[in-house]
Design a protein around this nucleic acid. Structure first.
Lengths: 377, 377
DNA sequence: CTTTACTCTGAATCATGGT
DNA sequence: CACCATGATTCAGAGTAAA
């Protein structure tokens, strides 16, 4: 309490010098309470996801998946997680400038609770943004869809805060002159960017890619703005903020993370003002699945496909597989099977009847791709 | 209340005939309460997004929620929406079979509240799925990102319901032989698919594309399953269910939507049964005990088995176990043991010599299954 | 040097049937 | 219900080793 008083008595300039571009060690809420109100422009928060894992998971080759089972991710119940979320969001809101905005990232385990709480506390959601991963971990047991994305919520402090920063034109210019969509494509953080210790083990289990945070800051801050990250971890937010000429404040409990983040940020060079353009994400993969031909109506279930010489025939099923008698499988598998080969490109092997002749289904893929390219950017 | 009693007294067959493949007119919750418990396989729900609802919201205890019609009050409104969500989700859960699953679609306006409530009520989220739109509406003011997606939540009835339907192999085969991801790309509903009245105006404001619902039903239902849609609207769920050989039940309040949906569904033709067959994987195959290979003479006691690289050898014993020196056990146990692993699929690990090469014993299992089919037929 | 093959890993709520 | 044996299951990308 006295610490709060002491800070509050200082002039704004001196006050700021105590916490700007630093990492505050300690609990998220109490550290937030030591900061002056209405002092930061943007908050990026990557809170614990509250994964509820039950036992080990092994890959098909029997290797064990290195799960996120850290103590900081464990909560007694949804109620406990909600209380935690409410506490830090309230504290964060006090620190946010009236025209400031907040970003929170999460997965289906926690993001719905976070989003509902944001709304309850008076934040006004501007967008939900989907981070599509180019290289997500597979679903090893084949019991669900591959969990290939995470969700971010972007919200203003109040419904009536209309003066928030959104660099619409810059984003559009960096995106082939079409406005930036709510689905972004980025790889997960690997390779040289991933912080590792002397043993080669990752330092933080959930380090986020810099490109993702860079787009966030380019979209919603101006050079010189102050960016707060209440779950600083390995310091991605600090590194990106410094590189892009923004100020940062980090809050982190664990000394090991603080040390790694400090070292990381110290090594970052701030870009020249002229070079501060939006980082573009990966171009969308051009792949078209056979099932999308059915989805778009280019191919109908029950249709018959042939090879070029019409020696083999197969029926298209509603599930997007090909059937020949009792056997069924993908266009590639069935093409290989009738030829007695190990592999086959079903797109060029199978044909459909058109104008009395045979046309490869690859032609339909080309047409489908035209429709998809607009969304791929 | 008497209506409920009357339905409950009827035999299951008669009961079903009253509501299967029909549209029930009325309020969502009270209509759900007239259906028998544990009677539907999958629920697809597209609830209203608008948080300023028009007054006929009910709390779980059936009391009317008021105070949404006067001055806009965020907190009152969210509370009302939550009560509405809780009421219909509870009623829906009662109707769902223990191994049933539910899909709910929404946007950032409501999906976080729906997701949190799903978790609160004991549903177990399996995936959140992003519908990426190829042709979303632009953001006209340039003050936000283009809202280019909607979110669907797929959840089982309970955490421990593991027996839900998921046609993993079919989805994978239809997707270039890679597992289906959580981000799907579809156009919004336009053109001939979009229902319009004689003036050319769209009949329903939020008609969903059939392709989206088709993928949902292909993924999480089997032919003959019962699909419930408590916010039936223009009847997309019914049309797709009928086309794919699934049963539907719709609930809708407005007669104009019911009329349009009926007409629409009547015009739909169900695909041939053969085209609706869903590709299934090894999981669906009958179990074969290794010892039955010996029983049927496909494998001789005393035969030697090897791993693929011929680093390990084991002898087949008459009791269906494998022996390596002093140690003996099942094909799985011994495969795990020689590799120093916890588990191993002995069927694919062990090979036998044939024509000078090595063939997995899984091949013999396949032959044994063929023999079983003949005997069974 | 280049090319190919193999290994490793990432926010994971990842089984089923019989006794 | 618990316990146990069976046996089904992975994508992209980076890094390293082999050819």
């Amino acid at each position: 309490m006295s610490a709060v008083r002491a800070l509050a008595d200082l002039s704004p300039a001196v006050r700021q010098s105590e916490w700007l571009d630093t990492i505050l060690k300690g609990d998220c809420v109490s550290a937030l309470e030591r900061l002056p109100e209405k002092s930061v422009d943007v908050i990026f928060a990557d809170p614990p996801y509250n994964l509820q894992l039950d036992g080990d998971l092994h890959r098909p080759d029997q290797s064990k998946v290195d799960a996120v089972d850290d103590a900081w991710d464990q909560f007694e119940s949804f109620e406990a997680y909600d209380a935690f979320t409410r506490a830090w969001l309230l504290a964060a809101r006090r620190v946010l400038k009236p025209n400031g905005t907040i970003w929170v990232i999460g997965s289906y385990h926690n993001i719905f609770r976070v989003g509902a709480k944001l709304q309850d506390l008076g934040f006004w959601i501007l967008n939900d943004i989907v981070w599509r991963k180019t290289n997500p971990m597979p679903n090893f047991r084949g019991r669900r869809f591959q969990n290939a994305h995470e969700t971010m919520i972007w919200a203003s402090r109040d419904q009536k805060s209309k003066g928030y920063t959104f660099n619409y034109e810059a984003l559009k210019a960096s995106n082939d002159d079409v406005q930036m969509r709510s689905d972004w494509l980025f790889p997960i953080c690997t390779g040289g960017e991933r912080l590792k210790n002397e043993n080669g083990d990752k330092i933080h289990p959930t380090q986020k890619p810099e490109a993702l945070v860079a787009r966030i800051l380019m979209a919603s801050t101006q050079p010189g703005d102050i960016v707060l990250d209440p779950f600083f971890g390995s310091g991605t937010t600090g590194a990106v903020a410094k590189r892009l000429g923004r100020h940062f404040v980090g809050i982190e409990r664990e000394q090991a993370y603080i040390d790694a983040a400090r070292k990381r940020i110290d090594a970052v060079t701030t870009l020249d003002r002229a070079d501060l353009t939006v980082l573009s994400g990966k171009r969308a993969e051009p792949r078209v699945a056979f099932v999308s031909l059915i989805d778009t109506g280019l191919m109908k279930p029950g249709a018959t496909l042939y090879d070029a010489r019409k020696r083999f025939a197969a029926k298209v099923r509603a599930d997007g597989t090909l059937a020949i008698g009792e056997a069924a499988g993908s266009i590639h598998k069935m093409g290989a099977r009738v030829q007695g080969l190990d592999a086959c490109n079903g797109w060029t092997f199978w044909h459909y009847e058109r104008n009395g002749g045979l046309t490869p289904i690859d032609e339909l893929r080309r047409i489908a791709r035209l429709g998809m390219e607009r969304a791929g950017a």
